[in-house]
Design a binder for these strands. Structure first.
Lengths: 110, 110
DNA sequence: TATGAATATTCCTTTACAGGAATATTCCGT
DNA sequence: ACGGAATATTCCTGTAAAGGAATATTCATA
């Protein structure tokens, strides 16, 4: 998994922007308005999201329409795949680990 | 989605810790060793992960065994669900949005 | 071409956070 | 009870990043 994507989503306003864009593509002004942000901050956050590949722009005259890109979400999903067995199996390997540790332990003073 | 979880995973070392714990529960010392971290930094990162609910501890004598908790991952998966149609449908609603904007536009000088 | 709307960028300040070093704490074995 | 191992905590410092305010840029239209 990419820490850059996580980092971009770690900021609450940016996370909200993403959740907003889930509904529909939006203009900078609309995003700022709906989230109660000032326009420059909205632009800055969108820049970060854009550089993380989470969002892409389409210029229409004066305005910039931002929309989500599927890739990071696909990747996140793929990443989660390796964790899925964690809750699908009830087996968490802790007992296994403890036994293993114990056996190393028993050979320590020889 | 919880920004705290994202924030915890945004730090590269912490992300690596999580990926390490995916294999098996581990001791602080083992984590530090495998990732080339100093013990205090490992402890601090584990604290953050713990407060985010990503990880839980089990004390065994001197040692603390850390393991992943399924919940945050379940939640992440559930959160992703709302984005899944984004790449499952090829339809991104941008054209829709443009038409909508255009119709608002046409009624602007009256 | 001058004007205003939409957006991006810059500069500044404040704050959060990561790493380093040192120290405190807890536990086992002797 | 003492010494050492494993872990947690504290203090300090540097740095990155977020918000505010101001300004630059770009575009459509009169």
């Amino acid at each position: 998994m990419n820490a850059t994507v996580m980092s971009a989503l770690a900021e609450p306003n940016r996370l909200q922007i993403v959740e907003l864009l889930r509904e529909s593509p939006l203009t900078v002004g609309e995003i700022a308005e709906r989230l109660g942000l000032r326009q420059p901050q909205a632009s800055k956050h969108l820049r970060v999201l854009s550089e993380a590949g989470i969002v892409e722009v389409q210029a229409v005259a004066n305005r910039r329409i931002y929309k989500l890109r599927p890739n990071p979400f696909k990747e996140l999903d793929a990443w989660l795949e390796s964790y899925r067995r964690m809750w699908e199996e009830r087996y968490d390997r802790l007992d296994e680990y403890l036994l293993e540790m114990q056996s190393k332990e028993s050979g320590k003073h020889d």
